[in-house]
């Protein structure tokens, strides 16, 4: 692993643009109390107002300030991205790496489970479960993660199997290193890049699924979710309000997803191309 990923990422145009977009979203989320001019949940008597000095993006049907909701929505989206990214990567790593390292019946059971889950349309299952459970942000992160770890686990297992056969691992073994030592000293550190790729991929999927569920109306109405905003705004698409309500929200969501997709693509171009995650597995499923 002699690639400086950070350097490679900055050399790639997609990488640069993606990073810039992600940093902007992070800054907006971080400074949302400063940027927002109203409480995002506070209704008022001035409903469906066009943009003005007081309300930069107008107000929605219950008189909430759209700009403030948009700015706070960045927090919700990044929280889901981070949560789903970390938790899914954790499950994928534990399942995939342990399957490759332990082997035998255990590996067969885990991989059979992975194969079965891959054949199931995860998003549809999440919609059904969410319709009954009505999750808040945390249960949603949990729900998405435990239903979408299978693709990552398959990739982590494949990479671990290949790392196990590398020369330096052989060398360590000839010096008498045990399984635990090899796992913690050689295999897990060398998994780093692939784990980052799985993380980016899971984060993208998390953002898309949270927004999609909210867009269908399955969301905690007290949160400022971009998907939920689009769900409400779509009901008024025949009015002019779509210009400052529906479109900016959709664009904010798209820019965030695009940032992750671009970074993932640039990162994986720098990595061994045979290990590409994004192009094997769609973030939409």
């Amino acid at each position: 692993m002699h690639i400086n990923y950070w350097k490679e990422l900055k050399k790639n145009t997609f990488g640069k643009v993606g990073l810039a977009m992600l940093i902007s979203v992070v800054i907006i989320a971080g400074s949302s109390p400063l940027l927002a001019r109203y409480d995002p949940g506070e209704p008022s008597h001035s409903a469906l107002k066009p943009p003005s000095i007081e309300h930069w993006l107008g107000t929605n049907d219950v008189g909430q300030d759209i700009w403030s909701r948009l700015v706070y929505g960045a927090r919700n989206t990044l929280l889901v991205a981070l949560g789903v990214g970390l938790f899914t990567t954790l499950i994928s790593t534990v399942a995939g790496a342990s399957a490759a390292l332990v082997g035998g019946l255990y590996e067969r059971i885990i991989m059979r489970m992975v194969d079965a889950l891959i054949a199931i349309p995860a998003f549809i299952v999440i919609i059904l479960v969410a319709a009954y459970v009505l999750p808040n942000v945390w249960t949603l992160i949990f729900l998405i993660s435990i239903l979408t770890w299978q693709g990552g686990a398959r990739i982590v297992r494949a990479q671990t199997l290949s790392l196990k056969e590398r020369m330096h691992v052989y060398a360590a073994r000839t010096f008498g290193a045990n399984k635990l030592y090899i796992s913690t000293q050689h295999i897990i550190p060398d998994l780093g890049p692939i784990l980052f790729a799985v993380f980016i991929h899971s984060a993208t999927r998390g953002v898309f699924m949270e927004a999609g569920l909210a867009f269908l109306g399955i969301a905690d109405i007290s949160t400022s979710s971009w998907g939920l905003m689009m769900h409400h705004a779509l009901r008024f698409y025949y009015l002019d309000v779509w210009k400052w309500w529906l479109l900016p929200t959709g664009l904010a969501l798209s820019v965030t997803i695009m940032a992750f997709v671009f970074i993932g693509h640039a990162f994986e171009t720098a990595m061994d191309p045979r290990l590409r995650v994004m192009e094997r597995e769609d973030w939409q499923c």
């Binding site: 898309f208 999609g212 689009m230 779509l234 779509w242 529906l246 969501l253 798209s254």
Partner: peptide
């Protein structure tokens, strides 16, 4: 790649509008 960033429902909304 840009289109890949647009969730399917937003593509639908843009066409609808």
């Amino acid at each position: 790649m840009v289109m890949n960033g647009f969730p399917n429902f937003f593509i639908g909304i843009i066409l609808l509008l």
